[in-house]
Simulated scan of single mutants.
Amino acid sequence: MPTPNQAALDFLLTRRSRPAKTLQAPAPSREELAPILTAAARTPDHGKLEPWRFIVIETGAMARLADLTEKHARAAGLPDEKIEKQRQQFDQGHLAVAVIEVRRETKALPAIEQTYSTGAVCLALLNAALASGWGANWLSGFPAHNRSFTEEAFGLAENESVAGYIHIATETRIPPERPRPDMESITTWLST
């Protein structure tokens, strides 16, 4: 019979992201962030390729990224209300970690496995931040998917892309629970 880690299971059964717009200073220091990043890097990684890396966005870089978001969103023809919404994550941010997928050349594994591992890093980072007592939220949107923005903002190489931004700071309130999947409708049991 396995020995359960009930505290970890209870955390996973009740975890809830905190909306980024409700997070406030302080954000974790570099020392406080180190174990969170270390926990995220323990994600399953078939082939030991490490197909991801982190860019920590501190408060001082947020205004520059907000302005760059607006610049590239205007160039892409987004309407003003969408531009304002897209720049908010940086206008209101205190600390975020950009999780960068680094697509490695390999014939041993399908490329999609690197994407799966990168997504798992995002969730592990989010959960590690929450488990450490911080509020955290995983955002993407235009600043994650617009190539000209990500190249200018972060100098990404051709084989790199942003999987998401994990915003981490002090939570101001616990959000209400939201509807969760109906397990019966999404689970199939194969017995034979």
Rank of each mutant, 00 (worst) to 15 (best):
S29G: 10
L109E: 10
A61N: 12
E81Q: 14
A8C: 07
E32Q: 15
I36P: 07
T115L: 13
R30C: 13
S29E: 06
R18T: 15
Q89T: 10
D10L: 08
A73D: 00
A34I: 08
L23K: 04
F149T: 02
E152N: 09
G135W: 06
F142A: 00
E160P: 01
A108M: 06
F90G: 03
A25G: 08
R180Y: 02
G119K: 07
A124L: 08
L78C: 02
T22L: 09
P26I: 08
H145D: 09
N146P: 02
E58K: 04
E113T: 05
S185I: 00
A34D: 14
M62F: 01
M62I: 00
A111E: 14
A75Y: 06
T115H: 13
T38E: 15
P176C: 02
P79I: 05
T69P: 02
T3M: 11
A144N: 01
R87H: 11
L123M: 15
A40V: 00
E152D: 15
G141S: 05
K82M: 13
L65I: 05
R180A: 07
G93S: 01
F154A: 13
A144I: 03
T118S: 15
Q88P: 09
F154T: 09
K85N: 04
N5T: 03
P4D: 02
V99S: 02
S29T: 15
T14V: 08
L9W: 12
I83M: 05
R18P: 02
H72W: 11
V121L: 07
R180C: 00
R64H: 10
P2H: 05
A73Y: 01
A73M: 02
A157V: 06
D80R: 11
E70C: 01
T43V: 12
T14I: 07
L12K: 03
A157S: 15
R16Y: 03
T115S: 14
L156D: 09
S140M: 13
P44N: 03
P28I: 07
M62E: 00
N159M: 05
L65G: 03
A129T: 01
R16N: 12
A157P: 09
L23A: 03
A34V: 08
T22M: 10
A76Y: 06
F90P: 04
E101G: 13
I186G: 01
E171Q: 14
L126E: 09
I166K: 07
H94M: 00
A61V: 12
A144P: 03
F149S: 02
A25L: 05
E113W: 10
A25V: 08
